[in-house]
């Protein structure tokens, strides 16, 4: 009797673990779970994808969208830019800072 219960418990626990594992793999069918732990879709460099979207330090909306609320340049792992465009973006943001289009510390109150 007790033996049977043990087994059922065991099975139950294993089942639950299995389902959780399976859930990890199958979870987020839209976003696609990754083994490495992170979730999220693969980002694409917007400057490469859209040729109309040209880097311009004078376009303050563009510059603001690549600056955090504290005035830091958005890192590549967040913006998904390729290396070349991130380098260009860095210099563009620095130029925009000189022109007071974006702030050095916080983007205005």
């Amino acid at each position: 009797m007790s033996n049977k219960m043990d087994r059922s418990e065991m099975r139950e626990s294993r089942d639950s673990r299995d389902s959780r594992d399976a859930g990890m793999d199958r979870d987020g069918d839209e976003r696609g779970g990754r083994r490495g732990g992170g979730f999220g879709r693969r980002k694409v460099c917007r400057f490469c994808a859209d040729l109309e979207y040209v880097m311009d330090y004078k376009d303050f909306r563009m510059m603001q969208s690549y600056v955090t609320e504290h005035g830091r340049i958005v890192p590549r792992r967040m913006s998904g830019n390729c290396a070349m465009h991130q380098r260009k973006l860095t210099s563009a943001v620095k130029r925009a800072r000189n022109l007071a289009l974006v702030g050095f510390v916080s983007s205005g109150n």
């Binding site: 303050f60 022109l99 007071a100 289009l101 702030g103 050095f104 983007s107 205005g108």
Partner: peptide, 16 residues
């Protein structure tokens, strides 16, 4: 005229 992100020479608006 635009609002500057930070004041320059005590000016908070600038004409570009």
């Amino acid at each position: 005229s635009r609002k500057l992100a930070y004041t320059i020479q005590k000016e908070s608006r600038g004409r570009y």
